[in-house]
Design a protein around this nucleic acid. Structure first.
Length: 729
DNA sequence: ACGGGTCCAACA
DNA sequence: GTTGGACCCGTT
């Protein structure tokens, strides 16, 4: 139960300003409740804050100032305060940053503003013109909705002066209404689509969970077309029936409009929407309505998790494996993990939906922490193409050639049939390395010391690590010999060259993110290809998801081993998911597909797992390997937090750490203010303090020491390391 | 003595 | 995060 503070009593206030501690104020006239959003004086300014608890009694009374006013906003609930505290704790984020995350809506401190809306009036207009008729028609046919001047004029296809004219005549009435209107009611009683056996069973299990009114997390597995969305919309319906709010998180804004349509079909109206593309006024409305209960359902990006729900009963994380759930600048958090945390605090059900779950989720389901529901495809078991490896050690191939004779024959066969073949190579640009044949120098990035990748299309060298670009030099930057720089290794642009030479008669299309100026141009090209506008498609990982190519029957993976040799912790996981996704693009329904993986190590466990399709076995092996490597089992993430005088320094160090050998799970950066940390701002050099928040296991500490020894960061870095043996969850 | 630039503790 | 004051330095 929230505490009430009488006028003049001492309250501690958390402000959104850059002070990482609570400040004591006198309660305002009329007192205030714990959790109230308030305006307080801070130096010469007024800032927003939240009453966090009783104030410090020992604080000097003469310095004490009073809260200016309590804002007209629903107070922060205790669960929200706890959630923010726990997330801040987990990610080592100062609380004022957390508060800012939770109040990311403009004008919260303003009184609710009004606006004019237009309704049908009681008088007939003196004469009826066509434009006037249209306005009246719109108002008659949609009497239940409120129109602003602009909306009404737009809907009727007239200018606003037509509407104003009607107002003067009394045919249309103008009235004041609050700007932040509740969202239209969602009809959860309407039946959803008919569900098949296991869909119905899964929906039933989710409904039961929601009905229990308690916390629970469920992994909902289902490939595209298995009806995943319909199943969890059943859980949403149950949640709404319980009078609680539901949140659906989607990884990309691009997916929201399609999803909104499906919700509208199911519940008869659109839910609230929250992501970076939403306008400021709409955000404000969403924030308020979520807090007041005027929004039953929100769909949004990761930051929607920090909305002030009045009573949240269900959180769905769709495509839970998607990397964009991780916020990697500012406050560092994984919305997927924090959803589980929020669910556990609020007594809500959490549904993690994916066709290819992340290892963390898999491990949690395996350990029994999450329930698991599997959906098979509507068309029976998923039709995966036949998969084979091509052992590159057995192939006769000159240097600077990458398409094996075996693959070339297969491609030839398909295009002669009028079908399509995809050559997949997950490497943008022309060649990953540019080497000087005179001295052996490899051109590196000046900014971050990664090697630069030649992009012939852009006519530049590009660093894939930090984005730095420079023109292709004429002479070697090291020995200054002219004309001896040579590309080494393949990129998709180079593959296009080889394909054009090997199949001169074929129409070739290259799909790589950097070859398209806009997302629209890329989409247009994809549609063109899908309609049969190319025989051979050469693509990077952007071909892995999205649009289907009905004529595609063969996928050739050029370098299936790519990504396996790296030191990236997630290398195996990513490779497994990526190649399975890409291979799955070959063939559909009645057309049988074939995937050929070119590999120098076909006996590698990851390659073997991809071939066998034994996903379960693969995840188990991965999990136990990581445990052996000293990485805490998932669910107890080890967080590496780097504190540096500025974010760039922290990120640079983070990059170095990420490239170092070892099990890094999460890297956070936190900027220490000058006062609490003995860190000076030094030009050209960085003093860095590493704070490691992780269970104090011996293997982890050994790994840490190894990273530090191998640390290779430009500039003068001084490191000190503290280990905080706090464990999570 | 004045103005500009930078740094830094304080903000309740 | 913002602010005002201290401090340094070079110019009037």
């Amino acid at each position: 139960m929230a505490e009430f503070f009488d006028e003049g009593g001492r309250v501690s206030v958390l402000t959104t300003q850059g002070i990482d501690r609570l400040l004591t104020y006198r309660a305002p006239e009329g007192g205030c409740w714990e959790g109230a959003f308030v305006e307080v004086p801070l130096g010469p300014r007024k800032v927003m804050g939240v009453v966090w608890g009783p104030g410090e009694q020992g604080f000097d009374a003469s310095k004490l100032r009073a809260v200016i006013r309590v804002l007209d906003v629903p107070p922060m609930r205790a669960e929200m305060a706890e959630f923010l505290t726990r997330v801040g704790d987990y990610t080592l984020t100062p609380m004022n940053f957390m508060l800012r995350l939770a109040t990311r809506a403009p004008g919260l401190s303003n009184p609710p503003s009004m606006r004019k809306i237009y309704r049908l009036g009681h008088h007939e207009p003196d004469r009826k013109t066509e434009a006037r008729e249209r306005v009246l028609e719109v108002l008659e046919s949609q009497a239940h909705s409120a129109f602003t001047l602009k909306e009404l004029a737009e809907e009727a296809g007239v200018t606003s002066s037509v509407v104003k004219g009607l107002v003067k005549l009394g045919a249309v009435e103008e009235e004041e209404s609050p700007r932040d209107l509740p969202f239209p009611h969602l009809d959860y009683t309407a039946p959803g689509k008919a569900l098949t056996g296991d869909q119905a069973a899964a929906a039933g299990a989710l409904r039961d969970g929601v009905r229990s009114g308690t916390f629970g997390a469920t992994l909902l597995r289902g490939v595209t077309g298995s009806g995943k969305t319909e199943v969890y919309l059943e859980a949403v319906a149950e949640c709404l029936a319980q009078g609680r709010q539901a949140l659906v998180l989607l990884p990309e804004i691009a997916l929201t409009s399609e999803f909104l349509k499906r919700v509208e079909e199911r519940f008869g109206a659109k839910p609230a929407e929250w992501h970076s593309g939403v306008t400021m006024t709409e955000r404000r409305r969403v924030w308020r309505m979520v807090a007041e209960g005027g929004a039953q359902m929100v769909i949004g990006a990761r930051s929607a998790l920090f909305l002030p729900f009045r009573d949240i009963g269900l959180i769905v994380v769709d495509e839970e494996h998607d990397n964009s759930y991780k916020q990697e600048d500012g406050v560092l958090y994984s919305a997927r993990d924090m959803s589980v945390l929020r669910g556990s605090i609020n007594g809500a059900q959490v549904v993690l939906a994916s066709a290819t779950p992340s290892l963390e989720t898999w491990a949690n389901a395996q350990a029994g922490k999450y329930n698991r529901l599997d959906l098979t495809s509507r068309f029976g078991p998923a039709v995966l193409p036949e998969m084979r490896t091509i052992d590159m050690r057995q192939e006769d191939l000159p240097g600077n050639r990458w398409i094996s004779p075996t693959l070339a024959t297969a491609v030839r066969g398909r295009i002669d049939e009028g079908e399509q073949a995809l050559i997949f190579l997950n490497r943008r640009g022309y060649a990953p390395v540019t080497v000087c044949r005179a001295c052996g120098h490899q051109i590196g990035c000046d900014h971050c010391d990664a090697r630069m990748v030649e992009h012939r299309f852009l006519k530049r060298l590009v660093c894939h690590q930090c984005g730095e670009t420079k023109p292709m030099p004429e002479t070697c930057p090291s020995c200054e010999t002219e004309g001896k720089l040579a590309p080494v290794g393949p990129g998709v642009e180079r593959m296009a060259e080889e394909v054009a030479e090997t199949f001169p008669d074929a129409r070739v299309a290259v799909l790589s993110s950097d070859l398209f100026a806009s997302a629209r141009a890329l989409k247009a090209q994809i549609e063109l290809i899908a309609a049969g506008g190319a025989d051979i498609i050469i693509g990077t990982q952007i071909v892995a998801k999205g649009h289907n190519f009905p004529k595609l029957t063969l996928v050739g993976v050029i370098d299936a081993d790519l990504g396996l040799q790296g030191s990236d912790l997630r290398a195996a996981e990513r490779t497994f998911q990526l190649i399975r996704q890409v291979a799955g693009r070959a063939g559909r329904g009645d057309v049988s597909g074939l995937a050929l993986l070119q590999s120098f190590q076909p006996e590698h466990p990851v390659i073997r797992a991809i071939l066998s399709g034994d996903e379960e076995g693969f995840w188990k092996a991965e999990a136990s390997e990581r445990q052996a490597a000293g990485v805490p089992p998932y669910g107890r993430l080890a967080g590496i937090v780097i504190s540096a005088p500025d974010l760039d320094a922290a990120m640079n160090l983070g990059t170095a750490l990420a490239r170092a050998d070892g099990p890094i799970v999460q890297i956070g950066a936190q900027v220490f203010g000058p006062a609490p940390a003995p860190i000076a701002r030094i030009r050209g050099r960085h003093r860095v303090r590493l704070l490691v928040k992780a269970p104090k296991t011996a293997p982890l500490q050994t790994a840490l020491r190894k990273w530090l020894a191998n640390m290779d960061v430009k500039g003068d870095i001084r490191l000190s390391v503290d280990i905080d043996p706090q464990s999570f969850y």
